[in-house]
């Protein structure tokens, strides 16, 4: 077989700066879906802490830090981003490799909440949505995972096949906000 060329989901689309807001692609490393077995959430959290230094996240929360993060990902699951999963996790949870299945972007800058307010039907302003908070919600017509990673920065994840739509929708919202001056 010929040597295959690695391609990021948003290759050729990002980075993008419009007004005060910048959209960049994030390379999350290994991505692993963790779904704890019934009653095993505490054991999984302990194993996660021992192996990777972060607890299993409560609903609507993310734990860890840039490069090694666990993001609550809905009913009974979390996404481990960064480190390759330790073998001990498989004792307490279903562990599924989802690397390369998600498009991951960072959006940051002054007024970033105004951009997201055009697309997401959840209040993401800092008074309600602080660093370490995460939601599963809609971004325009797509399901997305949105996490606050800084004072004016969010991490957004959608299915990889939706990368172009994600950039298009965010770009349109960024242009709309910038046009208002």
């Amino acid at each position: 077989m010929d040597k295959l060329i690695a391609k990021n989901p948003c290759e050729g689309l990002l980075p993008l700066t419009i007004g005060s807001v910048t959209l960049t692609e994030e390379e999350p490393g290994v991505m692993t879906a963790l779904a704890p077995y019934k009653g095993k959430e505490k054991d999984l959290s302990a194993a996660l802490k021992a192996a990777h230094g972060m607890a299993y996240p409560a609903p609507n929360r993310a734990t860890g830090k840039a490069g090694s993060r666990a993001v609550w990902f809905g009913h009974g699951q979390a996404m481990l981003m960064g480190p390759a999963p330790d073998a001990s996790l498989a004792e307490h949870a279903t562990v599924v490799d989802q690397s390369d299945a998600w498009a991951v972007v960072w959006i940051e800058g002054e007024g970033v909440e105004d951009v997201l307010a055009r697309l997401v039907p959840v209040d993401l302003r800092p008074a309600h949505f602080k660093r370490g908070h995460t939601v599963r919600s809609l971004l325009f017509h797509m399901t997305a995972s949105i996490t606050r990673v800084g004072d004016r920065a969010f991490q957004i994840m959608v299915f990889r096949s939706m990368a172009e739509t994600l950039v298009h929708d965010l770009k349109t919202a960024m242009e709309g906000v910038a046009a208002r001056g």
């Binding site: 609903p59 809905g74 009913h75 939601v135 599963r136 919600s137 809609l138 399901t143």
Partner: peptide, 8 residues
């Protein structure tokens, strides 16, 4: 079904 959310 919380389709556009947590999937519950």
């Amino acid at each position: 079904y919380h389709e556009g959310g947590c999937g519950a």
